[in-house]
Write a protein that binds this DNA or RNA. Structure first.
Length: 580
DNA sequence: GCCGTTTTCGGCCCGACTGTTTTCAGTCG
């Protein structure tokens, strides 16, 4: 049973939860939480490093003790401290901490005085009116807890970025229309382009805060007002999405935007830097003593601690502060850098539009080329193409290329990687294509060794140019298949195969962490829409978000190059030469 | 439990909001 970084992070998080309920030293708790975030965000697979007998690299917030615990978790799957803590506290009690409004103190009281250990037990106790009797609780809290538990038991907690966008834009526009409102920015994980968003954080500058708060709560989609103060408010939309509003002075807009954008880990690290310089940073600005020295813009906040402005997508405390201090921040790839798209579908398989329509849409996007990559024959439900139909499409593309101006169509296919790693179409037809995109669409359940070997074999096939959606995850729907990404990334680099950043909102695969892994390894990526209609080309911005979160620059993304250079790259692969 | 241009001990980010507290603790972001 392989131990992933996420598993290690999970053990540390659970230890932190249990220690918290035991009211251990809060800084010790924080140490475990920090370590969990560090491990989770790491592009290096720790299990691999430990397994091969390497010494763990020095990681921030992980000293001798936690390093030893990581090795223990990799070897045994768990850790002695966790086992002991689980004996001291009832299993599952940590899930109570996930209920908004419940922290360690209240959870401890619930479990000690009411023997409440699970969410259903908590709901029952609240409905029976037993919770209000406890010290520090009351009728209002009891109702709030019951509602929160019901939500917790029924609702998914995070929204895909693309879904959150559909709520964020109209709400922000509504607020812009409120009298007296000047600036409106959606901050938080939305601004950082995280693949999922837990809630929306909206920041507003306005003359009369009071009026804004009232109009905010009156937004037609609001189901419930969770909190409402003078400058802060929270509402729950009917969709279940929570939206937080903060009204600030223009003078401290930059400080507030920085604070509200997060991530929390990034903010904490920046404040710590400020503290060392004798400064204090809050959402109201940067202060020396009681004097505000910066805060009108984000640039001024960073400048106060001696740093250049850092793009929101990088603000995860994954080394961006150190890079900024060294003047080595990446020049992140932008949507406008893309010169084309190497993965789209048409009516021939499961797309909605014709080859011609897709070509015109790509041209309208300013692209110089577009690869048509319909599914291969194994994908029956998607009307995948066999060699005969694909040959016919090749002819169609040749004709269109003679006819259309300003855009070049590349002949391609998204070929299934079969169970044994072979491809779903014969080389005789694949050899006639400009670009072969290979993908796993079946047998997601293979054990790690076989799944990895299957994909490595496909990477070794000399005609394969791109590995599509390399982990196969569907956000909030399907876990990634169990593969050794470190080996796949390395092999892709050795073979000159591009790793895809699939921009479909449900995929975003490679993830940000894997983008970083690819960059560190020197593997090139291809940032593709996987469009099934002309509208889906707009999804590329979400892929760009992941790429930027993974520190990718234009030079790390193959399809930022002029067509001529890209063609050379694709053909060099097929000539069997390794890329640098 | 980590960490070091106030260092090997003594710190560890900061402020708003809620409910129950009768002056503030707990929680959240």
């Amino acid at each position: 049973m392989p131990v992933h970084n996420a598993d290690i992070a999970g053990v540390f998080d659970e230890i932190a939860d249990l220690l918290e309920i035991q009211e251990a030293n809060p800084f010790r708790v924080r140490a475990y939480r920090n370590a969990a975030r560090t491990v989770e965000n790491l592009s290096l697979e720790l299990a691999g490093a430990v397994g091969s007998g390497q010494r763990l690299p020095k990681l921030p917030g992980i000293g001798a003790d936690l390093a030893a615990k990581i090795e223990e978790i990799v070897r045994t799957g768990t850790c002695g401290l966790l086992v002991r803590l689980r004996k001291e506290l009832p299993a599952g009690v940590t899930e109570l901490l996930r209920v908004p409004g419940l922290g360690p103190k209240r959870v401890k009281a619930l479990y000690r005085d009411l023997a409440v250990k699970t969410l259903p037990q908590l709901l029952r106790a609240a409905e029976q009116g037993r919770v209000r009797e406890l010290q520090g609780f009351g009728p209002a809290r009891e109702t709030q807890i019951a509602d929160a538990v019901k939500r917790q038991l029924s609702k998914a907690r995070r929204f895909k970025l693309a879904v959150a966008t559909q709520y964020a834009r109209p709400f922000a526009d509504y607020l812009r229309g409120v009298r007296g409102v000047d600036r409106v920015e959606v901050a938080g994980s939305y601004r950082r382009m995280r693949d999922t968003v837990g809630d929306l954080d909206i920041l507003v500058t306005a003359k009369a805060a009071e009026a804004v708060m009232t109009r905010f709560a009156a937004y037609p989609e609001v189901a419930e007002t969770l909190a409402k103060g003078e400058t802060r408010a929270s509402v729950l939309l009917r969709s279940g999405l929570q939206v937080d509003l903060r009204v600030v002075d223009p003078d401290c807009f930059g400080a507030a935007l920085h604070y509200f954008t997060g991530s929390k880990a990034h903010n904490v690290a920046v404040r710590r830097m400020a503290q060392r310089k004798g400064l204090k940073i809050s959402e109201y600005g940067v202060f020396r003593g009681s004097r505000r020295i910066a805060g009108e813009t984000e640039e001024s906040v960073y400048a106060a601690v001696g740093l250049p402005w850092i793009a929101p997508e990088l603000r995860e405390d994954r080394g961006e502060l150190e890079a900024a201090a060294r003047g080595e921040l990446p020049k992140l790839v932008e949507l406008g850098d893309l010169t084309g798209d190497l993965h789209v579908h048409t009516k021939a398989s499961d797309g909605h539009d014709t080859v011609r329509d897709m070509a015109l849409a790509a041209k309208a996007h300013g692209f110089a080329y577009l690869a048509i990559t319909d599914h291969s024959q194994q994908q029956r439900v998607a009307h995948g193409l066999d060699a005969t139909r694909l040959a016919k499409q090749i002819g169609e593309i040749d004709r269109l290329n003679g006819e259309l101006g300003g855009i070049t169509l590349l002949k391609g296919a998204e070929v299934d990687i079969l169970d044994d790693g072979a491809l779903d179409l014969p080389d005789s037809i694949l050899g006639k294509l400009d670009v072969v995109v290979a993908a796993v669409h079946s047998r997601f359940d293979l054990p790690r060794a076989r799944q990895t070997a299957r994909i490595l074999k496909a990477l070794d096939h000399p005609l394969v140019n791109v590995l599509a959606h390399p982990t196969g995850r569907l956000i909030e729907e399907r876990e990634p298949y169990d593969v050794d990404m470190a080996r796949i990334v390395r092999r892709a680099r050795e073979r000159g195969v591009l790793l895809e950043v699939n921009a479909q909102p449900s995929r975003l695969d490679l993830t940000d962490v894997h983008c970083r892994m690819a960059k560190d390894e020197g593997a090139l990526v291809s940032l593709d829409s996987d469009a099934h209609s002309v509208h889906d080309l707009d999804d590329l911005r979400f892929g760009i978000g992941q790429a930027r979160r993974g520190w990718l620059e234009a030079r790390d993304v193959a399809n930022t190059r002029p067509l001529k250079e890209l063609r050379a790259l694709l053909e060099r692969r097929r000539a069997g030469k390794r890329t640098a």
